[in-house]
Each structure stands twice: as structure tokens, then as C-alpha cells.
């Protein structure tokens, strides 16, 4: 197993030496990948709010907490499995396990505990469908993406992106107990957004990926092909992101945001394709975060204010 190769600095039978490698609360929080978790929570909330019907606010908070904890558990299990490559990459070597502040066993125990806890609580207090979707999301991210695809194929983030796209579907299922075409459209938008977002990142993090043997597209197919694929996925993403307005799921505000920001997205993707520098990929990467946030925020505002 990958983490077997990794020698943790904090052995379980070591004396209780108090030093800088002692874990702190922030180390456990870092295992949960709070930045990823925040996007998951946000899209989950939008799915929940956009769904028809109502839910008791306390149950809604509990459901969102379960989605957040499930996402955090996935992050902890990802860090447990990837500790060996995290230790060799500049971007990730400061994480709690490579830095020696937590053992891989700590991350595994926390990840499994939180996974089981979040799924069980969601199932008991909300409904079986949302719990099943959360369990599937965690399993997909950990087993299919982290353990299977990530180190084997350049399509890792394309297929693995399904896990990151599921939170709005879970949010919708929390309220309705069902999955219809609307949450699947929300899923599809994030699914299509993931490749240009991560490939833009991988263009300027190529050296790290290459060093540890993760077959990201720039490593396997080259920079030119990656730039082309970013443009192709962007061309698919932008019309898809506009479609909720066309299909009557969203209103004018969402329509305007999706068209204007979509045009900017395409412009940046075009520049990435035409250029050969790393400035444009960095711009696209940063803009893609704003883009997804703005799309979902527009949906949220429309629903809360009653515009759709």
C-alpha cells in the first residue's frame, strides 16, 4: 500500500516527547481539507435551497453538517492514502502527515469514523437516499479516484470529478427524497467544470505531478494537448451552465451571470489554448473558482429572494 512506504515521524510506541510534532486541533482540521469542504458545503446548500419543498431548519443544518463532515472524511482518507506522494510534492509536503504531526493511522481512523458517523446520522435523521448518495460520494472519491484512478490514468480528474459534483444532488435529496433532472444538471455543471479547473492547475504544477508519477494530462499527453482539452471542456461547460435558465430552472439573474462569466471563461480558455505561458492557465484556474461560485450564488440568491 502506498502509505506503507511512508515513514511517519511520530511512531505510536515513541515516548511522549513534547515537541513541535505534537498534533494540534488545526492539524486535525487540516486533514479535512477545509477549502475543498467549503465548496462542497456551498454547492450542497444551493442544492438544498433550490429544491422544491421545505425542511425544518435544524434538520437542514444537520444535513449540511453531515455533507461537510462526509467531505472532510474523504479528505482525511485521501491524505492517509496519498501520504507517500504528498511528502514529495512542494505543494503538499506541509500537510499534517508528511510533516510528521499526525500519523497515517490518525488520518485513517478519523476518516473512517467521520464517514460512518456522517452517513448514519444523515440516514437516521433525514432519509436513506441522501445517506446512500453521501456514502457513494465518499466511496467514489476514496476508492475510485484516490486509490484507483489517480495514479493510473490521465482521466483521473475527469471521472473522479463525479465525487465533487454530487453535493448539490445530496442537498436536493435531503429536501425531496428524490433525484430529478434539475439536480443532475447541477451535477453536470460541476462535472464539466472540474477538468478545465484542474488541468489549468496542473499546467503550472506539472513538475510536482511528474516527480511523483501522477499521470496528469500535461505529464502524459503534453502541454499542447492539455491546452486543447481545456478549451474543449470549456466549450462544453459554458452552454451547459447557461441551460438552467433556458430550461426554466433558473431566472434572469442566473442567465445573465452564466452568459457574461461564461464568455469570460471562454476567453480565458481561448488564451490558454493560443498561448504557451503559465500566466493564462493561472488566470483561468483562479477565475474558474469565481465562476462556479458565482453561478451557484446566483441560483441561491434567486431562490432566496424569489426571482425564480
Amino acid at each position: 500500500m502506498s502509505d506503507a512506504m511512508f515513514a511517519s515521524a511520530r511512531s505510536s510506541d515513541a515516548p511522549e516527547a513534547f515537541d513541535d510534532t505534537q498534533p494540534r486541533v488545526v492539524d486535525y482540521l487540516a486533514l479535512l481539507k477545509p477549502r475543498v469542504m467549503s465548496l462542497v458545503v456551498f454547492t450542497g446548500v444551493v442544492g438544498l435551497v433550490a429544491a422544491p419543498g421545505s425542511i425544518n431548519p435544524v434538520l437542514a443544518v444537520l444535513a449540511i453538517l453531515c455533507i461537510a463532515v462526509g467531505a472532510g472524511a474523504s479528505g482525511a482518507l485521501n491524505m492517509w492514502y496519498d501520504a507517500d506522494i504528498d511528502a514529495r510534492m512542494k505543494r503538499t509536503r506541509g500537510r499534517p502527515i508528511p510533516a510528521g504531526r499526525l500519523t497515517d493511522g490518525d488520518a485513517l481512523a478519523l476518516g473512517i469514523g467521520l464517514s460512518v458517523g456522517s452517513v448514519v446520522v444523515l440516514g437516521l435523521f433525514i432519509n436513506v437516499l441522501s445517506a446512500a448518495l453521501l456514502a457513494f460520494t465518499i466511496a467514489f472519491y476514496v476508492v475510485v479516484y484516490t486509490m484507483w484512478l489517480k495514479r493510473r490514468t490521465a482521466q483521473n480528474i475527469v471521472i473522479g470529478g463525479a465525487a465533487g459534483a454530487l453535493p448539490p444532488v445530496i442537498g436536493w435529496a435531503v429536501v425531496t427524497g428524490s433525484v430529478t433532472w434539475q439536480p443532475l444538471l447541477l451535477f453536470a455543471i460541476i462535472f464539466m467544470w472540474t477538468p478545465p479547473h484542474f488541468w489549468a492547475l496542473s499546467l503550472f504544477a506539472k513538475n510536482d505531478d511528474e516527480k511523483v508519477g501522477v499521470p496528469m494530462l500535461p505529464v502524459v499527453a503534453g502541454l499542447r494537448e492539455t491546452r486543447k482539452q481545456i478549451l474543449i471542456y470549456s466549450l462544453l461547460l459554458v452552454p451547459l451552465a447557461v441551460s438552467p435558465s433556458v430550461l426554466g430552472m433558473a431566472g434572469l439573474l442566473y442567465g445573465a451571470v452564466s452568459v457574461i462569466l461564461g464568455a469570460v471563461f471562454l476567453g480565458l480558455a481561448w488564451r490558454v489554448w493560443r498561448g504557451d505561458d503559465l500566466v493564462q492557465p493561472r488566470r483561468l484556474f483562479l477565475f474558474s473558482i469565481l465562476y462556479l461560485f458565482a453561478l451557484y450564488a446566483a441560483l441561491l440568491v434567486e431562490k432566496v429572494v424569489g426571482l425564480s
Binding site: 425544518n56 435544524v58 434538520l59 443544518v61 444537520l62 453538517l65 446520522v121 435523521f125
Partner: peptide, 13 residues
Amino acid sequence: VLFYLASIAKMAG
């Protein structure tokens, strides 16, 4: 506290 409130909400429902 959260589980208590959620239980009350669930029972009320």
C-alpha cells in the same frame, strides 16, 4: 445540543 434539537424537530414532524 444539535442531536437533541434534531430529535425534537423530527418528532414534531
